[in-house]
């Protein structure tokens, strides 16, 4: 019986010792210079992750060439306009259409080629999109007419249609993972 008691006492003291050593661990952590290097590198990685998030975040730009009325002012659609964002290829956007363009990052540069008064003109505009904005509508007529950024750029909220479920491989013995790019 007494043996049992001593065993429990030992277990208790070892738990206590663990707590104490944990506390000491924290104290020594802040005393040793190499701990700051460790802490710094963890922070650096977290910082890198944040940077990567903003740099790699994908944005969809909807380049719109429709007649539009913003704040009581009407901008009529253009006959012929081609646009590129950052380093993409020029896309032609016919009258009354809307084209897609995907880019990463927040700072962008849009280049427009259009004909005004029989003359070919180029317009380069730099702009930023908020990171949280997934789809951005850019109204080209408003942009060319020199409207304010808050007017020609707006968040495009689409109602996502539920995507049908793709057929899945049920049998985990099928081992088709490498067969995906095979002929059959």
């Amino acid at each position: 019986m007494s043996e049992n008691v001593s065993v429990f006492a030992k277990a208790g003291s070892s738990i206590k010792a663990k707590f104490i050593s944990f506390g000491n661990g924290i104290v020594t952590f802040f005393k040793t210079p190499s701990s700051y290097v460790k802490l710094g590198s963890v922070l650096a990685i977290i910082g890198l992750a944040i940077v990567l998030f903003f740099v790699g975040k994908e944005h969809q730009f909807l380049l719109d060439n429709n007649t539009i009325e913003i704040n009581g002012k009407s901008y009529s659609s253009l006959n012929l306009v081609s646009a590129k964002i950052d380093n993409s290829d020029f896309i032609e956007i016919p009258r009354r259409t809307r084209m897609n363009n995907f880019q990463t990052g927040q700072s962008h540069k849009i280049t427009l080629n259009y004909i005004e008064n029989g003359q070919e003109k180029e317009l380069v505009t730099k702009f930023k999109v908020p990171a949280s904005e997934k789809n951005t509508l850019i109204s080209l007529p408003a942009l060319i007419a020199g409207a304010d950024q808050s007017e020609w750029m707006s968040e495009f909220l689409s109602v996502q249609a539920p995507v049908p479920d793709e057929p899945a491989v049920e049998d985990d013995m099928a081992m088709d993972m490498d067969g995906m790019d095979m002929a059959f």
């Binding site: 990685i45 890198l48 992750a49 990567l52 998030f53 740099v55 790699g56 975040k57 994908e58 990463t104 997934k134």
Partner: peptide
């Protein structure tokens, strides 16, 4: 899901996995 793409996306996924 966050729509982080390309090499930054892969690197971010790697950091999350650590």
């Amino acid at each position: 899901d966050w729509q982080v793409v390309g090499i930054p996306g892969l690197m971010l996924a790697a950091i999350i996995s650590i």
